[in-house]
Amino acid sequence: MRGGAMFRLDNLVLEQEGFRLSADWQAEPGARIAVIGPSGAGKSSLLAAIAGFYAPASGRVWLEGQELTGMVPGERPLSILFQDQNLFPHLTVAQNLGLGIRPDLRLSAADQARVAAALERVGLEGFGARKPAQLSGGQASRAALARVLLRARPLLLLDEPFAALGPALKGEMLALLAEVAGETGATVLMVTHDPQDAEEFAGLTVLVAEGVAAAPVTTGKLLADPPPALAAYLGPKN
């Protein structure tokens, strides 16, 4: 099991047509950070840039003294969960998990035992032979988290992966996510549009608004006394 790592965005600047976002901060190993802000502000773009799906205009991404900026997505020491399509629908659940160990799926008996153990760990014992279409939304999320467990990368990025789940199921998933993150010791960045997710799961929150991904601050404090941009996003409190 690998520990988390010091994560650093070094003068990172993202630019697209009519869009600009800058970030310059770092986070301690094992930190759990919510990324919050109005839609279109660039939360997903920030994650995509960290994961390597598009190149920043300038600046660097560091993880424990290693620069990620020039690496292709598959080589980066991180796992990422998207809003949907986290599982290949034509492969079985076990194969989807196996991809997390070896992309060519040449799995040894020990690898297969690890897959089974990971399934059991997330409460999907015996689901290995099923196709994703035969899983409920919550079960699919569990399978994706099981693969995160198997990959055990020091950084975990989540782009609203539970947005489609109901409140109770989402709470369950956040709890499981906390366990998975605890077991791998990974540093976690989770995009969410729900401040309650931030409060429940993350000690720290990054506010993405007005062209800046601000340095992480304590979630409770931020929500108790939001800056104007966040206040506008959250709306008047009841």
Binding site: P73, G100, L105
Partner: peptide, 16 residues
């Protein structure tokens, strides 16, 4: 993106 993030490429990508 999912395939890239899992480093699925070459013949394995073709096959799976």
């Amino acid at each position: 993106r999912l395939a890239a993030s899992l480093d699925l490429r070459g013949l394995a990508r073709l096959r799976f």
